[in-house]
């Protein structure tokens, strides 16, 4: 993999030695620790980012997220993104990101060239796969909410897991159905997986020719649970916008799944004009 030379970044100066007590306590400004290697644009607003860390990430559990930060003149601008995959050597991190039109960081990410230096935080989050649970698993992701589910399924594929799995990937338009080839390669590798890509707007011209599953994620889920009653005794992993998670949680629990077995990660979009993160 080739990356360009590191661009020069404006250093954040140290706090004055005699800072009065009312000033912020001295804090080390986190320096860039990774390089953007690739950006593959799937649609106008969805892209897959390949980032190479200077030193390997430690302690990542499939399902977790990481903060991605860019040095700006007035500090470090950060947002959290779920990890799609971490390379076996721990250096290469893959992120699946939606561009939020009024977002603070994502529009800037679309302007970066390979070689740009970025800051990745440590892996965080409690939405993680319990790979040793032998029960059926229902994975539901909408849009880029597929990201942490891919990390989980990749782990299961690598382990040669034997439990039955269902993956519902809900999108508005068929062009947003990312990672189908990767999922299908896992199927070919023997993973027990019922893969259901679904578009929620079948009548839109952008979905013309689509002959697959249609409907919102919760409606598709209800049909799936109706076809395979054994899934209700399993566990669910969901990631996406809060309204989808609420709707699908209701379908799962009404279908007989224990509330404690319904696990989710919600994607929040901070309000426009969110404060830029400053590292003093």
């Amino acid at each position: 993999m080739s990356v360009f030379e590191q661009p020069t970044l404006s250093p954040v100066g140290p706090p004055p030695a005699s800072a009065p007590a009312s000033q912020p306590l001295p804090r080390s400004a986190p320096a860039p620790n990774a390089t953007l290697a690739t950006r593959v644009e799937l649609t106008e607003s969805m892209a897959i980012f390949g980032i190479v860390l200077d030193s390997p990430m430690i302690g990542f559990k499939p399902g977790q997220y990481v903060s991605l930060g860019l040095a700006r003149d007035d500090g470090l601008l950060q947002r959290a993104y779920s990890i799609v995959a971490l390379g076996a050597d721990g250096f290469r991190v893959e992120l699946f990101i939606r561009r939020v039109p009024d977002g603070a960081l994502s529009p800037v990410l679309w302007t970066l060239e390979p070689g740009a230096r970025v800051r990745l935080g440590p892996p965080k989050g409690l939405f993680v796969l319990d790979a040793d649970d032998p029960r059926p698993r229902v994975f539901i992701g909408t849009g880029t909410g597929l990201a942490p589910l891919l990390a989980m399924l990749g782990e299961l594929a690598a382990r040669g897991d034997g439990a039955p799995n269902v993956l519902i990937h809900g999108v508005s338009y068929r062009t947003e159905l990312a990672y189908a080839e990767r999922v299908e390669s896992w199927l070919g590798g023997g993973l027990d997986l019922w893969y259901i890509p679904a578009v929620s707007r079948p009548d839109d011209s952008r979905n013309s020719g689509w002959t697959g599953t249609t409907g919102r994620a919760d409606a598709v889920l209800a049909r799936v649970l109706g076809e395979d009653r054994s899934l209700a005794a399993g566990v669910a992993y969901m990631c996406g916008n809060p309204s989808m998670i609420e709707a699908c949680s209701a379908v799962l629990t009404e279908g007989g799944m224990a509330a404690s077995d319904v696990r989710s990660e919600r994607f929040h979009t901070p309000a426009a004009g969110a404060p830029v993160l400053r590292q003093m």
């Binding site: 912020p24 959290a80 919600r266 929040h268 901070p270 404060p275 993160l277 400053r278 590292q279």
Partner: peptide
């Protein structure tokens, strides 16, 4: 720290 919080809401949810 209000200067660092990115409003992801993860803390509140757990």
């Amino acid at each position: 720290d209000p200067d660092q919080c990115i409003q992801c809401g993860s803390c509140a949810s757990v």
